[in-house]
C-alpha cells in the first residue's frame, strides 16, 4: 500500500515539473537582457550578421511560443538543450556539477545535525542552565549570520591566519583520486585513497560549516522546544517512575517523538540549503550547481538556467516526499 502511494506521489510531480518548466521559461524570456548581446562582451566590433547567425543558432529568432513548444518537446525526450555561453549540453553541465553540490549539502546537513541534535537535547534536559542559555544565544547568532560573511571570516581565520584549511576548491591536485561516483569523499573511501579523503574533507569543512550553520541553529531550537514539550508528557513521567535510566528515557522515548518536527524542518531546509549554495559555492569557489546558476543568470543563458531550476524543483519536491515517507517510519500512525 505504501509503495503504491509513493508511486502516486512520484507521478504527481510530473505536472509540477511541467509547470515549473513553463514558468521558468517565460520568466527568463521576460527578464530584460539579450543573451547574444551579453555574449559578445564589451569590446570590439560586432557585426549585425554575426549576431543574427547566433540568434538563429540558439533558436532565438522564433516567436516565444514556438521556442516554448520546441523546448518542452525536447525536454520530454530528456534533451534540455545546449548552454548558449558554454556551448555544451545542459544535462552534461548539470551532471558534472551535481555531485559537488549534493556532497556539500549532505555534509552540511550531517554536520549540522551532529551538532544541533545533542545540543538541542541537552539544552532541553538542562533547561535554563548556563549551557542552555549559551547555546540558544549562539543559535540565534547562527540564524542571523549571513553565509557570505561567515564564509569569509572562516577563510580569514582558518586559511589565511592559521593555514590549516584551504580557502577554496574541492580537492588538491596531485592526490590521484580515481573518480567513480563523482562524490569525492565516497570515491576516496571506495578506492582506499586516504590522502584524497583527507584533502577532500579539509576542502569540504569550511563551506559545509558555512552552509550548515543556519540549519544547525534552526534545528537546535526546534529539537529543544519539541523535547521540552515531550519531556512533560505523562508517558515520560511513567518511564521515569518505572526506574528506567535517564539516557533511555531521553533518547528512546523522548527524542524519537521530538524528531518529527525536526524532520519537517530539515526537509524544507534542504530547498533553502540549495538556494544558499549559490552564495557559499561562489565564496568558496566550489564547482557546483549554485555557481553555475549564478553565472547563467547573469549571462541570460536561458537553457542552463532552466535546467538548473528544473533540477532544484525536482530536489525540493523529492525532499518533501522523503519527509512524508520518513514520518510514517518515525510515527506509524501517520500515513502518506
Amino acid at each position: 500500500m505504501r509503495a503504491v502511494k509513493i508511486v502516486e506521489r512520484v507521478l504527481a510531480t510530473i505536472p509540477i515539473m511541467i509547470g515549473v518548466a513553463i514558468l521558468v521559461f517565460l520568466f527568463m524570456r521576460f527578464t530584460p537582457g539579450d543573451p547574444v548581446d551579453l555574449m559578445m562582451g564589451k569590446d570590439g566590433n560586432v557585426s549585425a550578421q554575426e549576431v543574427a547567425t547566433l540568434r538563429a543558432q540558439f533558436n532565438l529568432d522564433e516567436p516565444i511560443y514556438v521556442q516554448l513548444f520546441d523546448y518542452l518537446h525536447k525536454a520530454s525526450q530528456g534533451d534540455l538543450g545546449l548552454s548558449f555561453k558554454k556551448n555544451r549540453p545542459v544535462i552534461e553541465l548539470v551532471k558534472e556539477a551535481l555531485p559537488a553540490t549534493v556532497e556539500l549539502s549532505l555534509v552540511a546537513v550531517v554536520i549540522s545535525l551532529f551538532i544541533a541534535i545533542p545540543i538541542g537535547v541537552y539544552s532541553a534536559v538542562k533547561q535554563n542552565s548556563l549551557i542552555d542559555r549559551a547555546s540558544m544565544g549562539i543559535s540565534f547568532l547562527g540564524v542571523s549570520m549571513p553565509a557570505f560573511w561567515l564564509g569569509i571570516v572562516l577563510i580569514l581565520i582558518f586559511s589565511v591566519k592559521l593555514g590549516i584549511s584551504p580557502a577554496q576548491g574541492r580537492i588538491d591536485y596531485g592526490v590521484g583520486l580515481d573518480k567513480v561516483t563523482g562524490f569525492y569523499l565516497l570515491d576516496s573511501i571506495l578506492t582506499g585513497n586516504f590522502q584524497a579523503f583527507k584533502s577532500t574533507l579539509s576542502h569540504l569543512l569550511l563551506p559545509a560549516i558555512t552552509l550548515g550553520a543556519t540549519l544547525a541553529a534552526i534545528v537546535t531550537r526546534v529539537v529543544r522546544s519539541s523535547m521540552l514539550e515531550v519531556l512533560r508528557q505523562d508517558y515520560i513521567v511513567m518511564a521515569r517512575a518505572k526506574g528506567m535510566s535517564e539516557f533511555k528515557v531521553v533518547v528512546k522515548h523522548a527524542l524519537r517523538n521530538a524528531l518529527i518536527p525536526t524532520v519537517t524542518v530539515v526537509g524544507l531546509e534542504i530547498g533553502v540549503l540549495l538556494g544558499g549554495n549559490m552564495i557559499v559555492e561562489t565564496v568558496f569557489g566550489w564547482p557546483g550547481l549554485g555557481r553555475i546558476a549564478v553565472e547563467a543568470i547573469f549571462n541570460r543563458d536561458y537553457p542552463l538556467v532552466q535546467g538548473v531550476v528544473m533540477f532544484y524543483a525536482i530536489v525540493f519536491v523529492m525532499a518533501n516526499l522523503i519527509v512524508d515517507i520518513l514520518y510514517t517510519y518515525i510515527n506509524p500512525k501517520i500515513s502518506i
Binding site: 577563510i155 589565511v160 593555514g163 577554496q168 561562489t282 569557489g285
Partner: peptide, 17 residues
C-alpha cells in the same frame, strides 16, 4: 583554478594555495 570571489582569490594567494 576558478575562484570568482575576489576576497577568496586573494585569501588563497595569501595562504599560498
Amino acid at each position: 583554478e576558478v575562484i570568482p570571489e575576489t576576497s577568496t582569490r586573494l585569501a588563497s594567494l595569501m595562504s599560498g594555495q
